[in-house]
């Protein structure tokens, strides 16, 4: 779990052009729908999990998005 959160934080970092920690808030660090669209697409490609748009923006931190991916994997 810890490492998946770290991977997601890195993925966000690439799109937002800055260092991102696992507990950082998406909107506070400059996230928006344009970066969100790209991030969700990439998560689908890399992890085979399609995140719900609402869940993604309401999760708001890499750690919680990692949990969603875990749930998506076990649920699938």
């Amino acid at each position: 779990m810890g490492s998946l959160g770290q991977e997601i934080a890195e993925l966000w970092g690439e799109h937002l052009g800055r260092e991102v920690g696992v507990e950082d808030d998406f909107f506070t660090i400059g996230g928006n729908s344009l970066s969100g669209i790209k991030i969700i697409e990439q998560v689908t490609e890399q992890y085979g999990v399609t995140l719900s748009v609402r869940d993604f923006y309401l999760a708001q931190t890499p750690a919680r998005v990692a949990e969603l991916i875990e749930q998506g994997r076990t649920g699938a």
Binding site: N32, V53, Y57
Partner: peptide, 12 residues
Amino acid sequence: ATLAISHHELLT
């Protein structure tokens, strides 16, 4: 979050 969700869904 509300803005991002609505923007996102319109754009996609």
